[in-house]
Amino acid sequence: MHIPPPLDATDALKQHFGADVLYSKQFRGETTIAVNPASLAEIMLFLRNTPGLVFNFLSDISAVDYYPHIPSDERPERFGVAYHLYSMLYNRRLRVKVFAAEETPVVPTIIGVFPAAGWLEREIMDMMGVKFEGNPDQRRLLMPDDWDGHPHRRDYPMGKETVQFSFNVEEILKHKPSASK
């Protein structure tokens, strides 16, 4: 079987999508390409189907919250969503990153390209509050349906309870619910 030589993902994307590619970066041997969310689905389809790229496996989608957010070239918006693609043919990884605004964090879904994205996107919707437009299942995934807020945001409190010691145990037990009473 003839295998076409691998292409450079950044060059190929810049050639085809031009201004939709925001920047490309190398860190510890990993390539990150930030793209415009509007054309995310086409870019994913392109990365999956183009000979020489064939990123045919979606490893992970993770979201990161840059709170408190100071806009910069590298981090234009508060929420970043990182798609980790893997090419089984060329044995290499690629990170595609999109950014979502603080007020209306919406990113289009890529469920049409990678069905595996369905749950990964739902997890981010639940935990980070970034909406994925077009995902058929918009229910919460991990937290109960009536939960308030999105726990993985940096401004969401940890929800710690004060640790009990002998000096404060009585004070805490006054407020702590108990089934045995």
Binding site: D60, D65, R154
Partner: peptide, 22 residues
């Protein structure tokens, strides 16, 4: 998989585990 995003300080900004069972 482990996605790790540092802050420049001593604590991570974001840790995300891509887990097979999920």
């Amino acid at each position: 998989g482990c996605y790790l995003h540092g802050t420049g300080g001593n604590k991570p900004r974001r840790v995300h585990f891509k887990t097979p069972s999920f």
